[in-house]
Amino acid sequence: MSGLLGTNVVTQIGILVHDIEKVSEAYAAFFGVEKPAIFWTDPMEQAQTEFEGNPSPARAKLAFFDMGSLQIELIEPDHHESTWRNYLNEHGEGPHHIAFGIKGMKDKVELLAKSGFPLQQKGEYTGGRYAYIDTFPQLKVLVELLEND
């Protein structure tokens, strides 16, 4: 497969919200599915969160809706500066990123940076890692890389 990511399969759409409880209930009612659990991202020490190259205490509440081959992620950020908080402040509620499952995170991040798509935020989660790439100027949405162990 050609292209910078080695895949063209979107696995997730991330949506920023001000009130995850309210929006989560709306999604559940709209699709006739159970409202998912809402939980906080891990603290900085565990998640090794970095925003624009610096350690960051930023966290967010998340809720995941599995919709067939695509997952919808609702994100309510805390007040700390982060990709989530800054984007929500600048653009308001709505789509933040499209995510792709990849292999070789370090190499992909370097390749994208060399191609004019800089790393914005990265961190760890149980079972893997994520990286938000600043593709907004070109794609009008951010790209998130997800690598599961």
Rank of each mutant, 00 (worst) to 15 (best):
M105R: 06
E144G: 00
P118T: 01
Y132T: 02
V10P: 00
S24Q: 01
V23H: 05
L62V: 08
P95M: 15
T7I: 04
Y125F: 15
E81V: 07
A63L: 01
H79M: 06
N8L: 11
L112C: 06
K35V: 03
N86E: 13
S115M: 12
S69N: 15
V9T: 13
S69Y: 14
E45K: 09
F64W: 10
K122V: 09
A29N: 15
F65N: 00
Q71R: 14
T83R: 04
S56W: 07
F136H: 12
K114F: 01
H97M: 10
A99I: 03
Y125D: 04
A131G: 02
N54V: 08
K103R: 14
L112R: 04
H91A: 06
I98A: 07
A60I: 02
G53L: 07
E81P: 02
Y130M: 08
I20V: 15
T41A: 09
M1W: 10
Q120D: 10
V23F: 09
Q48F: 04
F64I: 14
K35W: 04
P57I: 05
N89F: 00
F31A: 06
W40H: 13
W84I: 05
S2Q: 10
E147G: 07
I75D: 00
V10N: 00
T126S: 11
Q138G: 04
K108Y: 09
L5M: 08
Q48I: 02
G68Q: 10
S82T: 13
N89A: 06
E21Q: 14
A113Y: 14
A26S: 13
E76R: 00
L62S: 00
M44D: 02
E90H: 14
I98M: 15
F31E: 01
E90M: 13
E52L: 13
S115F: 07
G104S: 02
S2P: 07
N8V: 11
K114P: 01
Y125V: 13
Q121T: 09
K22E: 11
E144F: 02
H91V: 02
T7M: 01
Y130W: 12
I15Y: 15
M1S: 15
I38C: 12
G127P: 08
M1N: 15
Y132L: 07
Y27M: 00
G127W: 10
Y87K: 02
F30N: 04
G92M: 11
Q48P: 00
M44I: 09
P118V: 00
E34A: 11
F39H: 14
